[in-house]
Amino acid sequence: MPISADVFTATARGKRSGEGPSKVQLSVRSLSAHYGKRLAIRNVSLDFKPRTVTALIGPSGCGKTTLLRCLNRIHEVTRGASVSGVVELEGQDIYAPGVDPVAVRRRVGMVFQRPNPFPTMSILDNVVAGLRLVGECRSRGEKLEVAERTLRLAALWDEVKDKLDRSGLSLSGGQQQRLCIARALATEPEVLLMDEPASALDPISTAKIEDLMSTLAERYTIIVVTHNMQQAARVSQETAFMLAGEDGVGELVEFGPTTELFTRPKDRRTEDYITGRFG
C-alpha cells in the first residue's frame, strides 16, 4: 500500500472527497506550451470541476507552474512564450481569436509562489487594486466594504482591521500571502489558481492557507500547485500528477480523485513518485 495513515485521515477531512460535482468549469485540451523554442509541457488534457480543489503535483521542473500560467493567459506575458491547444472556461475557449486576456484574468485569479503585495500601496489599496485601478470602487466606503468581505474570506481581517492604511509590506510573509489571496478574490473570479502558495511560509502560516483553501472551495474552483504530497492529500479532492519525460518535456501522467490516485495509482510512475522512490 503506497500510502501513509496520516494522508488517509487528512483526505477524509476534505469535503466531498467521494462525490464531486460532475459539471466542468475549466477544460484543458491538448495543451502545449513553449518558452521560445523550448517545449515545456506537451499535450496536456484534463477537466477541472467547479467548487473543487484540484492539486497539481510532480517533481520540480515538470511544468506545473507553466500549466497553471496557461490557465489565466499569464504565460504569454513571458517574452517568447507561446501556447497551443484549447482551454475552455465554462465552454468558451480563452485562446480563441478576439478573446481579451484581461477579461480572462478577471475571471481566473492567481496567487503566486512568493507573496507579491504592491510595494507602494497600503493594505486597503492592495486589496482593492484590481477594482480601483480600472476606475471601480472609488469611495472609501466601497473600498472598506470590499476589503472587509475579502479579508474575512482570506482569514486576515481580524489581524489587519486596525491598520488598513499601513503598507502591505509591513505584514509578515504569511499575512502578505493571505493579503494576495484577498486581492485576487476582490475582482470576484470564478477560478483561483495558486502556485505553491505556502512554499515560502512557516508551518503555522501554511496550515492557515491550507484551511483557507477548503473554505474557499465552497465558492471557487481552486487549482493548487504543490510539490508536497501530504498537502495535496490534505486539501484536494482531485489530483493531477505531472512528470517530465526523458526529453525534459512535462506531461500529465495521471489524473483522478485524490484518494484514488494516492491509494490505487494506475501508473507505475505515479506509484514510484508517491512512495518517494524518486522526485
Binding site: V77, R105, R106, N116, M121, A184
Partner: peptide, 29 residues
C-alpha cells in the same frame, strides 16, 4: 521592479496601461 509585481498586477486583470502607470511606475518612483 520585480517581474512578480508586474505579473501580480496583470493577473488581477489590469490592462497594461494600468499595470504600468499605477503599479510599476509607482514601485520605481
Amino acid at each position: 521592479v520585480p517581474i512578480a509585481i508586474r505579473e501580480g498586477a496583470l493577473a488581477l486583470g489590469l490592462p497594461i496601461y494600468a499595470t504600468t502607470l499605477r503599479v510599476v511606475i509607482p514601485a520605481a518612483r
